[in-house]
Simulated assay, not measured.
Amino acid sequence: MAQIRSKKDAERFLEQFEETACWDEAGGKRYFVFEDRERGGIWTLMRYADGSWTIHGKGDGYCDEGETPLTPEEACSFVWKNRAAIHRASEGAA
Rank of each mutant, 00 (worst) to 15 (best):
Q3Y: 01
Q3D: 07
I4K: 07
R5I: 14
R5T: 15
R5P: 02
S6K: 06
S6E: 09
S6D: 07
K8A: 15
K8Q: 15
D9N: 13
A10C: 01
R12C: 12
F13R: 11
L14Y: 12
L14H: 12
E15K: 09
E15G: 05
Q16K: 06
Q16R: 08
Q16I: 00
Q16L: 04
F17P: 02
E18Q: 09
E18V: 06
E18I: 08
E19C: 00
E19L: 03
A21F: 14
A21K: 13
A21H: 12
C22Y: 05
W23E: 08
D24I: 00
E25P: 08
E25I: 14
E25G: 10
G28Q: 08
G28Y: 06
K29T: 02
Y31K: 03
Y31G: 08
V33N: 07
V33I: 10
F34L: 05
F34N: 05
F34C: 02
E35V: 14
E35T: 15
D36Q: 13
D36G: 13
G40Y: 09
G41L: 11
I42Q: 15
W43K: 05
W43Y: 14
W43H: 15
R47C: 03
Y48A: 11
A49F: 02
D50N: 14
D50V: 04
D50T: 04
D50F: 01
W53A: 07
T54W: 01
T54P: 00
T54Y: 01
I55W: 02
H56K: 08
H56P: 00
H56S: 03
H56A: 02
H56V: 04
G57Y: 03
G57E: 06
K58R: 11
G59P: 07
G59Q: 10
D60R: 10
D60P: 07
G61V: 06
C63D: 13
C63L: 03
D64H: 09
D64G: 05
D64R: 04
D64A: 08
E65F: 13
E65C: 10
E65G: 15
E65N: 12
E65A: 15
E65I: 12
E65V: 10
E67Y: 09
T68Y: 11
P69C: 07
P69T: 14
P69M: 11
T71I: 11
P72F: 06
E73C: 01
E73T: 07
E73M: 04
E74M: 15
E74S: 12
E74P: 10
A75E: 01
A75K: 02
C76H: 03
K81E: 14
K81D: 13
N82Y: 08
R83A: 04
R83Q: 04
A84C: 01
A84P: 00
A85I: 02
R88E: 15
R88K: 14
A89H: 12
E91V: 13
A93L: 11
A94W: 08
A94V: 03
A94I: 05
